[in-house]
C-alpha cells in the first residue's frame, strides 16, 4: 500500500500543482483582458453608445481618495516620525546625524509614501471593490446589467479604475508631504534647528525625479489594486462565505503584488 501510495501521492501533488498553476495563469489572463476591455470602453465607449460617465468616477474618487485621507495622514505622519527616529539613531553611530534629512527625504518620497498609501488603499478600497462585485455577482446583479445591454466592465470596473488612477498618486503626494513634515517635527528640535530651516533644506533635497519615481509607482499600484479586486470579486462562487474568502484573498494578493512590483520597479529603474 505504502509503496503504491508514494508515487501516487507525488503524482497527485504534481496534478494539484499543475492545476493551480493553470488557474493562476488563467487569472493573470483574465486580469489582463479586463484591463484591455477597460481601455477599450474608455476609448470606444462613445462610439458603442456606452460612454464612461463622470459622475460615478467622481463618486468613486470621493470614496477611494477623500475617504482614505484621514488614515493616510495619520499613518504617513507616523512613518515619517519613525524614519526620523531610526535615521538619527543609526547615523549617530557615524556622528552624521545632521545628514538624516537626506535619508528621510529619499525614503519617504521614493518608497514609504507610495508603499503605505498603496497598502492602505488596497485594504480599504480593493477589498470593498471585491466584496461589492462578489455580492453583485451572487445576487445576479451583474447578469441583470448584461441583459439590460449595459457592459458590466464599463459600468462597474472603469469608474473605480479611473478614480484609483487619479486618487492614488494624489494621496501619495499628500502622504509624502505629511511624512516629510512630521519627520521635520522630530528632526528640527533634535538637531537644534527650526522647522523653517528644515523645510528649506527639504526643498533643496527633494528632486522632482524622486517624486515622479514614487508617483509612477503609485499609478502602477492603482491599476493592480483595481484589477486584483475585480478579478477576485468576479470569481466569487458559493454565497456569502465565497464573498468573504475572495475579499480576504484580494487584499492579500493586492498587497503582495504591490510589494513585489515595488521591488521589481526599483530594480529596473534605479540601477
Amino acid at each position: 500500500m505504502s509503496a503504491d501510495a508514494e508515487p501516487r501521492g507525488f503524482i497527485g501533488f504534481l496534478d494539484r500543482l499543475g492545476r493551480r498553476t493553470a488557474t493562476g495563469i488563467a487569472e493573470f489572463g483574465f486580469g489582463a483582458s479586463l484591463l484591455g476591455e477597460c481601455l477599450y470602453w474608455l476609448g470606444m465607449g462613445r462610439k458603442r453608445r456606452q460612454p464612461v460617465r463622470l459622475a460615478p468616477v467622481v463618486a468613486q474618487a470621493m470614496e477611494i481618495g477623500i475617504g482614505a485621507l484621514p488614515i493616510v495622514t495619520v499613518l504617513s505622519a507616523t512613518i515619517g516620525i519613525m524614519l526620523a527616529i531610526q535615521g538619527i539613531y543609526t547615523l549617530r553611530l557615524f556622528g552624521a546625524e545632521s545628514r538624516v534629512s537626506l535619508g528621510v527625504a529619499m525614503s519617504v518620497v521614493r518608497e514609504f509614501g507610495p508603499l503605505i498609501t498603496g497598502i492602505l488603499v488596497a485594504g480599504r478600497s480593493g477589498s470593498a471593490l471585491a466584496a461589492r462585485l462578489g455580492t453583485m455577482r451572487i445576487n445576479q446583479e451583474i447578469d441583470a446589467l448584461t441583459v439590460m445591454g449595459i457592459s458590466p466592465v464599463r459600468f462597474l470596473v472603469v469608474p473605480p479604475l479611473l478614480a484609483m488612477l487619479v486618487m492614488l498618486p494624489a494621496l501619495t503626494l499628500w502622504s509624502d508631504l505629511v511624512g516629510l513634515f512630521a519627520a521635520g517635527l522630530y528632526i528640527a528640535p533634535q538637531l537644534g534647528s527650526s522647522i523653517g530651516a528644515y523645510v528649506d533644506e527639504m526643498t533643496d533635497l527633494v528632486r522632482l525625479n524622486d517624486v515622479w519615481h514614487g508617483l509612477g509607482k503609485s499609478a502602477i499600484f492603482a491599476v493592480m489594486i483595481t484589477v486584483v479586486g475585480v478579478v477576485n470579486g468576479a470569481s466569487v462562487t458559493g454565497g456569502a462565505e465565497g464573498v468573504g474568502r475572495m475579499t480576504t484573498r484580494s487584499v492579500v494578493h493586492a498587497i503582495s503584488a504591490i510589494v513585489i512590483t515595488d521591488m521589481v520597479f526599483v530594480f529596473m529603474v534605479t540601477r
Partner: peptide, 17 residues
Amino acid sequence: QRLRTRTGVAFQSGALF
C-alpha cells in the same frame, strides 16, 4: 446590445442594484 434594449428581464431574486 441593441437587441437587449428590446427585451426585459425580471430575475427571480429581483437583482435590483
